[in-house]
Amino acid sequence: MYHAIVRRNLRNSFAEVNRGNYPAVVRQFAPDAEHWFSGSHALAGGRHDAEQIQRWYDRLAEVMPDLRFELKKVVAKGWPWDTVAFVEWVDHLTDREGNHYSNQGVHVLRIKWAKITELHIYCDTALLASVCDALGQQGVTEAVAPPIGHPGPFRAALPAG
């Protein structure tokens, strides 16, 4: 039952992103959560506090205002005090000239007592970097800005098994 609730909550979180309701997503993070995105682009790097995570979602909303996720798989395991979840997705967005883009990837999350303590995002980062470059050429300065937070590796690895 618990894992079904976690999966439902994750589906609802992605639905909030699809509606552009980023404050609802940001509220789900623990105050010292780790938010990390692979690659070398404006959305990459690591954030370790609520202010940086908020700034990242503000940037996401500005850079990709019509971003929509289609969920393929949602998996959760563990206990309420240490849950690991995986969300496999395909996303869709349109640039300022009407060109459509789609990427695929996975979110890996650690959740403790209903708060996200770690989020790691993996996708085709070369594709995402090219989309950011195209958006930058279309005048979206945040699409080519330096990453928010630090560009280095994340603090801790998720547990094996």
Rank of each mutant, 00 (worst) to 15 (best):
C123A: 11
E70Q: 02
P65K: 12
M64E: 00
G139W: 05
D95W: 02
G45R: 06
G149N: 12
N18R: 05
L10D: 14
V25C: 00
R55T: 07
V6L: 03
I111Y: 15
V106L: 07
G46C: 05
K112V: 15
D32K: 02
Q52F: 00
P153T: 08
G78T: 01
V87S: 01
S38W: 02
H3Q: 06
A42Q: 02
E51L: 03
A143Y: 09
G20P: 12
I148F: 05
L10M: 13
F29L: 07
V108R: 13
H48Y: 06
K115Y: 08
G46N: 06
H35Y: 15
D58K: 06
R68E: 07
Y101V: 02
L128D: 02
V63N: 09
I111H: 15
E70C: 01
A15E: 12
L60C: 09
V26Y: 14
A24R: 08
G139H: 06
G78D: 02
G139S: 08
A50Q: 15
S38A: 09
S40N: 05
R8Y: 14
H92L: 13
Q138A: 10
T94E: 11
V6F: 09
R7M: 07
N9F: 13
A42P: 01
G98N: 06
G139R: 04
H92D: 14
I148G: 02
R110S: 10
W56L: 09
A160E: 15
E97G: 10
D49T: 05
R47K: 00
M64R: 00
N12F: 01
D95Q: 04
H100V: 13
A156H: 07
L128W: 00
G98S: 14
A160M: 15
V131M: 03
D32M: 03
P80M: 07
Q52G: 05
S102D: 10
D82Q: 09
G46R: 04
I53R: 12
G152R: 10
L71R: 12
M1G: 14
V17W: 15
F37I: 13
V90P: 00
R47Y: 00
G98M: 10
Y101R: 01
F69S: 04
S130R: 05
G105Y: 02
S38P: 04
R19F: 00
P153M: 11
W79L: 05
Q28E: 05
R96Y: 04
E16I: 00
N103K: 12
P23G: 09
E62M: 11
G161D: 13
D66R: 12
T141V: 10
A76V: 13
G20A: 11
N12H: 03
H3A: 03
E34Y: 02
H41A: 04
E88I: 02
D82F: 07
V140N: 04
D49F: 05
E34G: 06
P153C: 11
P31K: 07
K115P: 05
P146D: 12
E51M: 03
N18S: 01
W36I: 01
Y57G: 08
A143R: 12
A145E: 08
D49Y: 11
F69C: 09
A134T: 03
I5D: 11
I121N: 06
R59H: 06
G98L: 13
V74M: 03
G98Y: 11
G45C: 03
Y101E: 03
V144I: 05
L158D: 10
G152L: 09
A129V: 14
G20F: 11
A143M: 15
P80S: 07
